[in-house]
Design a protein around this nucleic acid. Structure first.
Length: 423
DNA sequence: TCTGGGGTCCTAGGACCC
DNA sequence: TCTGGGGTCCTAGGACCC
């Protein structure tokens, strides 16, 4: 049996932990540049404000209902997530973290009749230990556990934990569950299912296996099996990322090459740090910068460069070199670039990297330098030593190309804020 | 005017091999 | 003039997730 622990309105809940005055008040968390709504409190959901809506489209409601808006603060959410996950891990020998706010506990070591009360206890423990409210769904497959967690979240009577352990409960739960809300059923699949006259999860589960395979191929087939109680989705451990991305949309369009160079430099530094942290190297680097996809009245241009690296690397300086060269080659003067980013792919363990016969770099020296820089930045702060084309951290607050007007303090990761909270 | 960011997996089709 | 069949690997693009 799986028990899925799913944090309720996670980003909003993180903000509320440090702002108890906002309990029972309408609150949203916004995406980068304060663009879209990415997390909503129950009060906001009740107002009919959908997920992902741009802030400017709901300005009147924000005003009218006094909705509190937060810019996203990922240092805070990441830290709160770590706290929740470490408490969850204590309850099982097999824990699979699925996202920043969800994880699956294997609970076969708990006798069937105690599983629900056991999970109710976990819900209370997490709340007491972190201030984050969670819901739990218990079932023989991950997809059914997801369904159960939605019921637990929706109805107070479950005390935070809903159990699907019998055929009767499975059928009843699926009968009242919209097929489009099933984990793994997206927009396309939903449209196809509706066209076939299927609107509930039970109607889908009750069709023949061949139907699911023919209509939705392998992913749909797996979902069908899971809904019928056959455990077949393996999340795997995935300790090593297969691709690493950094990208940002700018508050207003960028036309200066130098500004793009700074951004790309920052992205390279951040990705390369991540790469080294998981002890891997990459063989491909993609650099891009694009103009707004919503504007039709200005110059449209796409910079896109896939660069095959001669030797797999995690060296920040080397990545910056290749990235900036491609950027400069394709940069078009006058184009208003609204978003830029880099993607590292073809990632492999550093120990598996092959040397190149015609290599011109002193790799051992590079590595020693990189290690030294990492140590200095770990010890004295993230921006102690940077590459010269990077943005100046001091300038970040004022002259930033990003907008973050409603950011909460770094309550849990900045020593000055931690002291404030303690006081 | 203002519209996020970071991932994974699957599939079809092309290149290439014998 | 006649021009197969079976396989692997790679990649781009799509669908989906939070």
């Amino acid at each position: 049996m799986y028990a899925l622990a799913d944090c309720n309105n996670f980003f909003v809940s993180c903000e509320r932990v440090f702002r108890p005055d906002l309990w029972n008040k309408p609150v949203v968390v916004l995406s980068g540049n304060d663009g879209c709504v990415v997390s909503r409190s129950n009060e906001v959901k009740a107002l009919g404000i959908p997920m992902g809506v741009p802030l400017y489209q709901i300005r009147d409601k924000v005003e009218k209902y006094g909705i509190t808006c937060f810019s996203s603060n990922f240092s805070l959410y990441g830290d709160m997530s770590d706290r929740v996950m470490s408490l969850l891990r204590k309850h099982t020998t097999r824990f699979e973290q699925y996202s920043i706010d969800e994880g699956y506990i294997h609970i076969d070591h708990i006798s069937p009749e105690r599983q629900k009360t056991y999970c109710e206890q976990i819900v209370r423990e997490i709340y007491q230990g972190t201030g984050i409210p969670i819901s739990m769904g218990i079932a023989p497959t991950k997809t059914l556990a997801k369904v159960a967690s939605k019921y637990a979240k929706k109805h107070k009577g479950y005390h935070g934990a809903c159990l699907i352990d019998t055929e009767e409960r499975r059928r009843k739960a699926l009968e009242m569950f919209a097929v489009g809300d099933v984990w793994g059923v997206g927009r396309q699949a939903r449209t196809k299912l509706h066209a076939a006259g299927i609107t509930t999860a039970l109607q889908f589960a009750d069709r023949r296996e061949e139907f699911a395979r023919n209509l939705l191929h392998k992913p749909g087939l797996l979902t069908w099996r899971e809904l019928n109680g056959i455990d077949c989705i393996d999340l795997g451990e995935m300790a090593q990322k297969q691709s690493i991305t950094r990208s940002r949309t700018f508050a207003s369009a960028v036309t200066e090459l130098a500004v793009l160079e700074q951004q790309i430099t920052d992205f390279c530094s951040s990705c390369a740090r991540h790469l080294r942290a998981q002890q891997s190297v990459c063989r491909q680097l993609t650099v891009y910068a694009v103009t707004s996809r919503f504007r039709t009245d200005s110059v449209s241009h796409t910079i896109w460069a896939d660069i095959s690296l001669p030797v797999a690397t995690s060296n920040t300086g080397e990545l910056i070199e290749y990235a900036l060269r491609a950027l400069r080659e394709q940069f078009q003067a006058g184009a208003p670039y609204k978003r830029a980013g880099i993607i590292l792919t073809h990632i492999l363990p550093a120990a598996h990297a092959l040397p190149d016969l015609f290599d011109t770099r002193d790799r051992q020296k590079d590595e020693r330098l990189q290690l030294t820089l990492d140590r200095m930045n770990d010890r004295f702060g993230k921006y102690t030593i940077q590459y010269a084309t990077a943005t100046m951290p001091a300038a970040n607050a004022d002259a930033s190309v990003y907008k973050r007007e409603h950011c909460s303090p770094l309550y849990t990761t900045d020593i000055r804020q931690i002291l404030q909270v303690c006081v």
